[in-house]
């Protein structure tokens, strides 16, 4: 790869083209490997596909572009504070749809920061909730039979199903 390249083009699983700067792409291990191995110059016509849908990839790239400057150089405490606030805003998304995809994408792209952030967000949605409230939030179906439920109730006297 020539060092003059500043941004690369990738395809989403829906076939849409996206531009991502090299410094932002370095936040993902697989993308970083691709940068080292594959030719990304203009005369190379093969555009790599990332197995993430367009809607999710937009968010992932947004995250990378925001975090790249900090990852590549030391930043001050107030920058870290500002970034934390940005993360919270960034994660205010539709739970049933996009959060799931972000979790999968961060896992697949080996992005530690985003992976932790997305898992933390999912955990925060569960915090302080009863079992039935968590089921409702994530549409989890209770597939225990009534006998099994009775048995579980005896094993976990402190927890309620309701």
């Amino acid at each position: 790869m020539s060092s003059s390249v500043e941004a690369i083009t990738v395809l989403s699983s829906d076939g849409d083209e996206f531009k991502i700067t090299v410094s932002a792409a370095k936040l993902s291990k697989p993308l970083n490997w691709m940068l080292e191995d594959v030719c990304f110059s203009d005369d190379c016509d093969e555009v790599p596909t990332i197995e993430v849908n367009s809607k999710t990839l937009v968010k992932v790239i947004e995250y990378c572009e925001k975090h790249a400057p900090r990852a590549n150089s030391g930043a001050s405490d107030s920058d870290a504070e500002e970034l934390k606030k940005w993360d919270i805003e960034f994660m205010k998304m539709d739970v049933k749809d996009i959060l799931f995809h972000i979790l999968m994408a961060a896992n697949y792209l080996h992005m530690e920061g985003l992976y932790d952030l997305a898992c933390q967000t999912a955990a925060d949605l569960m915090k302080g909730m009863t079992v039935s409230q968590i089921r409702k939030i994530f549409h989890i179906k209770n597939d225990f039979s009534s006998e099994e439920q009775e048995q579980l109730r005896r094993q976990h006297p402190g927890c309620s199903f309701d």
Binding site: I140, D143, H156
Partner: peptide
């Protein structure tokens, strides 16, 4: 709370 999630489903 982590243990309580075992009651969600199989």
């Amino acid at each position: 709370e982590a243990v309580a999630t075992s009651l969600l489903s199989k």
